[in-house]
Design a protein around this nucleic acid. Structure first.
Lengths: 237, 237
DNA sequence: CGGATACTTGAAAAGTCTCAATCCGCGTGG
DNA sequence: CCACGCGGATTGAGACTTTTCAAGTATCCG
């Protein structure tokens, strides 16, 4: 990631990691400006709603700590789709016609910043370099969405699950490189709704990955990645 | 869509239509500036490559006329996925680590503008209001990707196909509101690679929609939308 | 008009989903 | 500290659907 002020195009910025919070790219002045319009929100427990799909959209949110899920509900209320799991450093608050497109729910204790849209727009018009960072964030989300679309295009549930597990490599909070154990912050149904499978299929896919020696289940929520290479091959094929 | 200079947040802009080309939102000065860095490209026939996945990314592209497809190839070369079909007014050129993520191919005679990244970045830093328009475009692409992800989550091929057909309502070039006929600019295999199906399944789904009275095939490439309401219900469910 | 390509349709195979029962882990309360 | 109970997770069998493989038909273009 390039610092603001360089000539490297923000639009083609490289992949971010957990540590690349927006903050680290800001000049002290930019940081102060953003803080002046931002309000910090803390959620001490999981399953809290940040906002609902269809509510009037008046702010953008910046995830600082924890994890949230973005879900979209179809007309028949039983049918939901988890659009994304967000990590620290991610931006959310996508809207259309002035209303939020998703419902945002916390999966863990979470800290985030709320940026009112009108204040933010004023700020971004004043500070074009700061705006470039937001443009880069948008590009990052676009890449993520595109990747996820390709994952959903795979027929084999094992491939989808492998891709899903490998997403956690970016996370410092839910993946321990020492033990190579992923600590899943969501249940099987959430994973299923994210990968467009049933929760039974998720279980079966995980069992298959285990019999093939790619992973090892310590407990339902703790999965050890045994053969990273094989998982990667399966995911990217 | 709001004109530049209003206080309505660009990030929450409403849905665009074919007519909402970037040009229409520009001040004469902005337009002149963009033109000064842009070079027009014309493709007189289909199946032309604009750029390949993996090439060094040095420009953003603006689609003015025609249609292009964005495809991503997996390691094994038989496996491809069509990420998006782009309409006039769409922006493309997404990259990661300085290289394009997709291969872009024309599906019809096409006119587009090439905007070199370094020139563009300079311009966007100078003109923060112009940059807001690009931010809005990025948000629009993000909405599109999210919708498409939900479509791929549907199991039923008929639903996916219904969503696909309804996407053409936005297009002035490939949909005629009078006769309600969609003129498909791509073959069954392209549709299949877009919807994550086989081309046989696309055929069968189309046949099923026809027996159920929702559409009528005039010829393989010409599909009349008979029951718009039913199609919509099927797609959005 | 002819050839090649694209499209449609059919039958068998493979896979996931549904429904159901069982198992496990975790928190609660005794 | 341990037993209990609840929700989540796993596993099994059958129904259903899509894919695969193959053949036939239509369409487009030279």
């Amino acid at each position: 990631m390039t610092a603001p002020g360089t000539t490297s195009p923000a639009i083609s910025s490289s992949q971010d990691t957990d540590l690349d919070h927006l903050d680290h790219l800001l000049t002290p002045k930019q940081r102060a400006r953003l803080e002046s319009i931002a309000s910090a929100l803390k959620y001490t427990c999981r399953d809290q709603i940040v906002y609902h799909q269809g509510q009037v959209a008046d702010a953008l949110y910046f995830l600082d700590l924890g994890m949230v899920e973005l879900t979209t509900y179809q007309k028949s209320d039983g049918d939901r789709h988890i659009v994304a799991f967000l990590y620290p450093g991610d931006l959310f608050g996508l809207s259309e016609d002035g209303r939020y497109l998703n419902t945002v729910r916390t999966l863990a204790p979470t800290k985030l910043y709320r940026l009112p849209l009108d204040d933010l727009q004023r700020l971004l018009v004043q500070d074009a370099r700061l705006q470039l960072l937001f443009l880069a964030k948008a590009a990052q989300e676009l890449r993520k969405a595109q990747r996820q679309k390709i994952v959903l295009g795979q027929r084999d549930p094992c491939r989808r699950l492998a891709s899903f597990l490998l997403e956690f490599l970016r996370s410092n909070q839910y993946y321990d490189p020492e033990t190579r154990i992923v600590s899943l912050p969501m249940n099987r149904r959430d994973i299923a709704d994210y990968l467009a499978l049933t929760h039974e299929s998720v279980s079966r896919a995980l069992a298959k990955l285990e019999t093939e020696g790619m992973v090892q289940r310590q407990s339902p929520r703790l999965v050890r990645l045994k053969d990273m290479r094989a998982l990667n091959d399966l995911a990217t094929y």
